[in-house]
Design a protein around this nucleic acid. Structure first.
Lengths: 139, 139
DNA sequence: TATTGTTATACTCTATAACTATA
DNA sequence: TATAGTTATAGAGTATAACAATA
């Protein structure tokens, strides 16, 4: 297979696997996007709307809607910045941290079961590929 | 790192990379979902709505909307089944095949550029991981 | 004037429920 | 009665354009 087809196949595979993973969320309390944003706040710490939308490569109005849902659900907090009246500070609430832990556990279930069925050398191959994929995702 | 965290990290990485890929589509004529469905028809051959929605793990009404968009755009055809009046037959049109080729080329551009920057051994690792990921996506 | 966030509006994808037509 | 497809309706995520408040 030439490079071009390999690239295309890998791209499609990644998108299909992500789609498959999304379909296994098994949690009605929070959407995939909301969960992803909540995890960013938990990992990177409190930040403003602009930072968050840039981080997720989404427009500010779009992120605003997601943040509204999280705040209304009690999983994130929105407060005014003390030093700049235009800015806001978004952060994860205690309830948000709880839901992260629980949601993550549920979402990992399907994937872990499938990975456990792989041969040891297949797992090793994925372990080697993981940091490369991570790098690609962060470009 | 224990298995549990590895699984979770890989899952998140795949979802983030898919998200990154989606943001690079650079094509206004067709959506990501529409393109994916069109590719299924091109790869698997003509099929009915139920088959298609089951294949993509989406409800029939949802798939119906996507199919409508493709038919209205002239990229897919909907015709009655000759042997069963309830069934329909969905297929790719000539225009659909053209748009598949062009869209695929555009969407691969970003990914190919990034893959080209990898070291040869990194590409080899991804090549080894690709069929495993593909298998996981098809479970 | 520039930046930060928000509201208004619209389009796509998703789902469930209810419906039609055919087997 | 069961199956294949469709329509009606609603919710979430995305975008652009226009706006308010603050620097």
């Amino acid at each position: 297979m030439d490079n071009e087809n390999f690239d295309s196949d890998l791209r499609v595979t990644i998108q299909r696997l992500a789609r498959r993973l999304r379909s296994e969320k098994a949690d009605d309390r929070i959407s995939d996007t909301q969960f992803s944003v909540l995890c960013v706040l938990a990992r990177e710490g409190a930040m403003g709307l602009g930072d968050l939308s840039a981080h997720e490569r989404v427009t500010p109005p779009s992120m605003n809607r997601t943040v509204n849902a999280l705040v209304e659900a009690g999983y994130a907090s929105r407060s005014g910045s003390p030093d700049d009246g235009r800015k806001i500070v978004l952060d994860v609430t205690e309830g948000g941290h709880t839901v992260i832990a629980e949601t993550r556990r549920r979402r990992d279930a399907w994937f872990s079961l499938r990975l456990a069925d792989l041969a040891p050398e297949q797992r090793a191959t994925l372990a080697a590929a993981a940091p490369i994929l991570k790098e690609l995702a962060e470009l």
